[in-house]
Design a protein around this nucleic acid. Sequence first.
DNA 1: TTACCAATCCTGCCACTAGG
DNA 2: CCTAGTGGCAGGATTGGTAA
Length: 298
Amino acid sequence: MNMIKSNFSIKDLENLSGIKAHTIRIWEKRYNLLSPNRTDTNIRYYSLESLQKLLNISFLNKHGIKVSKIAKLSNQEIAAHVREIASREKLEDHAINTFKMAMINFDQILFYNTYNSLIETRSFSNIFYNVFLPLLNEVGLLWQTSTITPAHEHFLSIHIKQKILLNIERLQLLEPKPNSRTYILFLPENEIHDIGLLFINYKLRSKGYHSIFLGESIPMNNLSYLLDFFNHITFVTYFTVAPEEEKIAEYLSEFNKLLLKQDNKLFVLGQKAKTILPEHLPKSISVSNSIKNFINQL
DNA sequence: TTACCAATCCTGCCACTAGG
DNA sequence: CCTAGTGGCAGGATTGGTAA
């Protein structure tokens, strides 16, 4: 039934669950928590079920249940405890684990079921801030440590994007505020991480602002055509991997010269934006350290 | 191919800390 | 005190890559 290759090294489990490999070995020795298969040469490798179980164990452990107690429970009992705690405590941690499993297994159904049960009790924005953003953050790290493949990351981000688009679609009937500024959302060249920006697009529209989403990898020159169409532009961009750190200052000053005429402004968000020193920026350029802060200051 | 090297994993041990 | 978790180290094996 499950066609996904599912062999995980102990390092993979450490990365995915946050439990140190050392501790996993100790748990196996002391409590027989997991019984990994071994290669001919005695190296541990784990099944998807083991990963599932470890994620559940680490969830219970973080909620104060002693590992020695957990060890006495069967897999079913463990799963039942997780469901019970997840239903009365913060749903976030558990949901993140479930989304992770959905990603590793390329399980669309699990993704949608998890999302649907979250959306029953909370707003889309709430889910995005408290579940999707921390999840994407973790997944970025998993990718760096090659615990997961780019395909996994794509799978996850495409479904998150789909949810954002769905919510934007529902807003189309809102009449934009008259005389409001125009927000132009774009990513610089070689930058393709557009989820944050897409969510900003959703928030801007839900607040009735006029926004234009241009998406990934837009050369600066292309933006200058927009100056003929709109006044009072606020550009919004998001630096995750591009531009390179040494070139950010140059990029911003060129942007300022070329596009920030009259009262146009630029907001920069994202991981790379954190390296920018605000003192050296012209008045027309601002840095925001999170999507939430950016939205709240509108 | 072979020889070597660095990284990683294995087990087992001891020591430290935090909390009951 | 005991328990649980973490960290470090030793000593050996495996692995993948690279130079001879």
